[in-house]
Design a protein around this nucleic acid. Structure first.
Length: 1117
RNA sequence: GCUCAAGUGGCGGAAUUGGUAGACGCGCUGGAUUCAAAAUCCAGUUUUUUCGGAAGUGCGGGUUCGAUUCCCGCCUUGAGUACCA
């Protein structure tokens, strides 16, 4: 009987749908497993063969887990809000909801044909109000939360108000806007409602603010940083400019550190983690304040240690007493935050041990100046504990325990002297800078401010005013893109002002320069030209001194940017120290003297959350007295209003400004017509919509309880499914979706809504499938330059048709020309007299890949008649061996390259099972690989061969006879390999394994049920339709999908002999079959007596014979 | 520039606690079957060779009895990111 894939596949797809075979249970005895594909956007173009790759892999895994006895959740849905549908709506006037629905239908049809085991009862679409109701709900939760740094989590805004009421905001340790005014409890109580709301907005996790945004005029919307690639929009490549607008933002920066830390506990690809790490951009350094000089120079009164004293100190560290060594060995082994240093200077005192993080000093008692020391240390906020030598030597663990107690329960320090507070001079300006190299602070010879820096106008001297103004004018003209593209030009201007170096007290020039970015850090840098290339170039260009603070380093040509191994010099108390120590000491001193402190900076910016678009989630927000108000959750969803057109309004408002029914009736609790706005209790609604990533940042939780109408998802279902166990998708979401989704998950976790703070345990990036484009080579004739143009030339060209030359007829442009000319002459299309006048050039043109067969031969007639090749209807083809061969090149699969392959066509011709197998067979899942349809014949004939095993000519026939040893060996070898492969996500190799198994069973003429039945279960995750069909033909009732995975038994693989490779100096020369139970000595004897060995030795005596039983024999000559 | 990943036949790729390089498939060559084609089946297919062999996993070194696999340096390709202080 013939294997009829079309009929079989259609039947089983129907069976699965009717029986809801893959419906997951929220209550099950079985262990759970959650397999998820990244949310697809249903585009109008439909799927090409590259899209299902990840879906097939996850489907195989999901099916495998079902065989292994798991309750598998494997859902699918659509991220259906987005720009393309809206752009299409603008062009055609069709409602995006309609086109989106049509696209979803196409997608669903295509997906169904591939035989995925999705639980469609849980399907969600982000544009469905039943879904985005909960997206709006989460937004409200974010609005009603603030980030408490003390508890390191998000809390309800009510707890913040409570503190304000009690003690004002001075003690609050929150993530908030910068420049928040300090107020007392009384002041808070006196604020008006609007004032209070304004203040709270500065703390909320989603907040309205005037921010510089990336405005894309062509798309009429703002874009997030991750939606911009190389300075242009990711979608459509339109230019982007910076613009100040009032926008909703998400305080993702509050989670920067936790997003970083969380990466360590999830099994995600390293490159993906790297790019998130990169995007978050943590840099450790210091904030330093430089005073702007106003005549008087400050001198430092601090006592410091000289270089010599520091050297002596180092010496001391090497030579510890016995008690000191014993205690140090214990202290340094202590894990965690409480890290100790030995022989450290605090002020002018040398202390035995200090834990800077916990402000604890540990000393041996008996020092002369103990009282004085204690007073000084306490004044510097250190606790001191002392031990006797004997105590340490007798019981070091007891001492360590006492130290631990001191760390955990620090004594309250009573300061004898109040810390000096640096008095702020009335008209004294300060420049704050962030630096990652506080160790190089003595190398500062100037400062650079961004031209936009607010101090520029205040500090510029009259003499320099003109220069500075000109420079600012010039840079303002340069667009962001120009500035980014042109990093070579060095430009800047001197302000005439000076800053005071906080350590040395020296005056340093203050410059402005556009290499300093206003929106990074503080918009100012302390320039260390000897240690930073940009500072170096700037200094060279403007003849600013470049002091060298590195020991033995030549900086005459370029800055010294390395940090390891170099000692600091000419730096007072830092001299002689290496990077790490100098860094810490510098920060320590800054903190002590009060002009700087250690700080961690993140590159991660708060995420702009407003889009000036129609096709997105509406905000559940209305405005009362200009302040945003949340609509109560019970009135959700706020449904997207109808609009007449999808463009911005004439006065530049977002498209929702066109809606006529878009006002909030705060009494009736419903959306009403805009004309009711005259009414006192009716307020305008928000006109922006949410960005594309809103709906996709939490959908994985919705699948757990997708139809819940009263909750985001029930507690029980969230508790049962917890997180995604396996998440498969493309790497393009690294810094967008995957970062935002982790952020929301952490927030929802803080609020006790979800039970885990990372939503996906394991993630795999599938590689892209590339297209194999086909090229034809067109000859264009023209008359050589330098000849007078006359009519005879036109005649010459007129007779020449378009000519295509087969790929292998030429290897260079010259050869190409010769081939074409010969063809023209042979066919009398060119007068030999004019042959030298005519020149031929070659152009490669994409040919539709569907016109090319597996041998790279073009269907010439098909090409001529192709709709897109109307110009070439009468073209002539120069053939090789009777065929036209095309050139091949691997490119991204795209319509414009005519290399798109539609999975539907493959399914019709070869079947879904063949498609699934072939996509996996192409290569490792994570790798990019080219698609070549011709290769599919391999898996197609494999399926036919498999089918044949179960048939005797036309009759289905399997035998109940006991399988032979050989047959069992084939089966168990296959079980072992396939199981290992699936566990390792190495799907390509298991397809090979199936082929080998079928080849071997065919050779053995095996038709035993005991072999062929378990084989189907192994294959069923990969090729479910044929497996179901044969499974039912074997007499099984119901679906194969939950049949137990065959159990591997090692006993079937035990061999008695091994075909040993015999190597000489590591090179394999021949093999020798030997029983496995031979001892090393016996093996050596047999091998050495072998005549081939003797021939190889050529009379030499082997130096050594290496025998690894069961593996290899190597003879060293 | 920085970070990461990858370089193996004509092509996709296989082989790692270091142990027979090129499994499996495509393509190609020859043969069988056929009036013929498709389909199917069989044999061969890294290079080189004096047919004994010899060389060979981007290049150059190293470790080892033995290296595609480990180490050092370099080259190439791809991806991400970038005046980030």
């Amino acid at each position: 009987m013939q294997y009829n894939h079309q009929e079989i596949e259609e039947n089983w797809q129907k069976f699965w749908a009717e029986n809801q075979t893959f419906k997951a249970e929220n209550n099950s005895e079985k262990p759970k497993y959650y397999v998820l594909d990244m949310f697809p956007y249903p585009s109008g173009a439909g799927l090409h063969v590259g899209h299902p790759l990840g879906y097939i892999a996850s489907d195989i895994y999901a099916r495998y887990k079902r065989h292994k006895g798991f309750n598998v959740l494997h859902p699918q849905g659509y991220d259906s809000f987005g720009l393309p549908a809206e752009q299409y709506a603008i062009q055609t006037g069709q409602h995006p909801a309609k086109t989106t629905e049509a696209n979803i239908t196409t997608y669903r049809k295509q997906l169904d044909k591939i035989g995925f085991s999705f639980d469609w009862s849980r399907e969600v679409s982000t544009s469905n109000p039943e879904y985005y109701k909960w997206t709006q709900w989460i937004f409200i939760q974010l609005f009603n939360s603030w980030y408490n740094k003390d508890t390191d989590k998000a809390e309800d805004i009510a707890t913040l108000e409570k503190i304000f009421k009690k003690e004002g905001n001075a003690t609050i340790n929150a993530v908030s806007d910068e420049d928040i005014k300090t107020f007392s409890a009384d002041e808070w109580k006196a604020f008006s409602k609007t004032e209070k709301e304004e203040i709270l907005l500065q703390y909320r996790l989603t907040f309205l603010s005037d921010t510089e945004v990336n405005w894309c005029p062509a798309l009429g919307t703002v874009l997030a940083n991750d939606e911009i690639v190389n300075g242009v929009s990711e979608r459509g490549s339109h230019p982007v400019v910076r613009k100040k607008m009032t926008q909703w933002s998400m305080r993702i920066s509050a989670y920067a550190q936790r997003l970083l830390d969380g990466l360590e506990k999830i099994d995600w690809p390293q490159p993906l983690k790297d790019s998130q790490t990169n995007w978050i951009g943590r840099s450790q350094g210091a904030m330093v304040s430089f005073d702007v000089a106003n005549g008087t120079e400050k001198t430092s009164s601090e006592v410091k240690l000289s270089y010599k004293e520091l050297e002596a100190l180092k010496e001391l560290r090497q030579n510890l007493s016995k008690a000191e060594t014993v205690l140090w060995d214990e202290l340094k082994n202590k894990k965690g935050a409480a890290k100790f240093r030995k022989k450290y200077t605090i002020g002018t005192f040398l202390v035995d041990y200090v834990c800077l993080a916990k402000n604890l000093i540990v000393e041996f008692s008996g020092k002369e100046d103990e009282a004085e020391r204690t007073a000084f240390f306490n004044n510097e906020s250190f606790n001191v504990v002392r031990f006797k030598n004997e105590e340490v030597i007798e019981n070091v663990l007891k001492v360590v325990a006492a130290i631990n107690t001191a760390i955990q329960f620090p004594k309250k320090i009573e300061k004898t002297v109040e810390k000096k507070v640096v008095a702020k001079d009335e008209n004294k300006y300060k420049i704050d800078v962030f630096t990652t190299r506080p160790d190089t602070i003595y190398g500062v010879s100037f400062m650079t401010l961004a031209p936009e820096h607010e101090l520029v106008s205040k500090i510029t001297t009259d003499a320099q005013k003109a220069d500075v103004a000109n420079y600012i004018k010039a840079t303002a003209k340069r667009s962001e893109r120009d500035r980014m593209a042109d990093v070579k030009t060095i430009s800047g201007a001197f302000t005439g002002a000076y800053a005071i170096h906080p350590f040395s007290g020296e005056k340093v020039q203050i410059w402005i320069g556009d290499y300093v970015l206003a929106n990074y850090g503080t918009g100012a840098v302390m320039a260390v030209p000897c240690g930073d290339q940009r500072d170096y170039d700037f200094a060279k260009h403007f003849n600013i001194p470049i002091p060298n603070i590195f020991e033995g380093v030549d900086i005459s040509e370029e800055a010294h940017t390395g940090k390891d191994g170099t000692k600091i010099a000419n730096s007072d108390f830092l001299s002689g120290l290496k990077y790490k120590k100098a860094l810490k000491l510098a920060i320590f001193e800054m903190e002590k003297r009060g002009f700087g402190y250690g700080k961690i900076n993140y590159r991660l910016r708060d995420a702009v959350f407003s889009r000036q678009r129609y096709w997105g989630e509406p905000f559940p927000v209305y405005y009362k007295d200009g302040m945003p108000q949340m609509i109560d959750a019970e009135h959700l969803p706020i449904v997207l209003p109808e609009v007449e057109k999808y463009l911005p309004t004439e006065d530049g408002k977002p498209p929702l400004g066109n809606a006529t029914v878009w006002a909030w009736d705060s009494r009736g609790k419903k959306v009403v017509a805009n004309d009711k706005l005259k009414n006192k209790t009716v307020y305008p609604l928000e006109l922006n919509t949410m960005p594309g990533w809103a709906g996709s940042s939490w959908y994985f939780n919705r699948y757990m309880d997708a139809t819940n109408a009263t909750e985001f998802a029930s507690k029980e279902s969230l508790e049962y499914w917890k997180e995604v166990d396996l998440y498969i998708g493309g790497s393009e979401h690294a810094t967008g979706h995957l970062l935002y989704a982790r952020f929301w998950q952490k927030f929802l976790f803080d609020k006790g809504i979800v039970p885990v703070d990372e939503f996906a345990k394991k993630l795999i990036n599938q590689g892209m499938i590339l297209g194999t484009s086909a090229f034809v080579y067109k000859a264009t004739a023209f008359v050589q330059n330098g000849c007078s143009i006359d009519k005879s030339n036109d005649d010459v060209l007129e007779k020449i048709p378009t000519i295509f030359v087969s790929k292998n007829l030429f290897s260079s442009d010259d050869e190409f020309e010769t081939v074409v000319k010969n063809y023209l002459l042979d066919n009398k299309l060119l007068n030999p007299n004019f042959a030298d006048l005519v020149m031929i050039t070659k152009t490669a043109i994409h040919a539709d890949v569907s016109l090319v067969n597996s041998s790279d031969e073009l269907d010439v007639d098909g090409f001529k008649n192709h709709a897109l090749n109307a110009d070439y209807k009468n073209a002539e083809f120069v053939l090789e061996d009777g065929a036209y061969k095309v050139g091949r090149e691997v490119e991204k699969m795209s319509k414009s390259k005519y290399n798109v392959v539609n999975p539907d066509d493959i399914v019709v011709e070869y079947g879904a099972d063949a498609l699934r197998l072939f996509e996996m067979f192409l290569g490792p899942l994570e790798q990019a690989k080219p698609w070549k349809t011709s290769g599919i014949s391999g898996v197609s004939s494999f399926l036919k061969k498999l089918w044949k095993l179960y048939f005797n000519e036309e009759v289905f026939e399997v035998s109940d006879a006991a399988p032979t040893k050989e047959e069992l060996k084939v089966l168990h070898k296959t079980i072992k390999k396939v199981e290992e492969d699936i566990e390792n996500f190495s799907f390509n190799t298991s397809v090979s394994t199936f082929m080998i198994a079928v080849n071997e069973l065919t050779a053995l003429k095996c038709n035993k049920k005991a072999i062929l039945e378990p084989l189907l279960v192994l294959l069923s995750p990969y090729a479910p339709h044929i497996s179901e069909e044969l499974w039912s033909k074997l007499g099984n009732k119901g679906s194969i999908s939950t049949a137990g995975f065959p159990v591997f038994e090692a006993k079937h693989l035990i061999e008695s002999a091994k075909n040993y490779p015999i190597s000489f100096n590591g090179k394999m020369r021949f093999t020798l079959e030997l029983p496995l139970d031979l001892s090393k000595e016996e093996i050596e004897k047999v091998v050495m007596e072998n005549e081939k060995t003797i021939a190889q030795l050529e009379g030499n005596t082997p130096k050594k014979v290496i025998i690894v039983p069961g593996k290899i024999i190597n003879i060293v000559i």
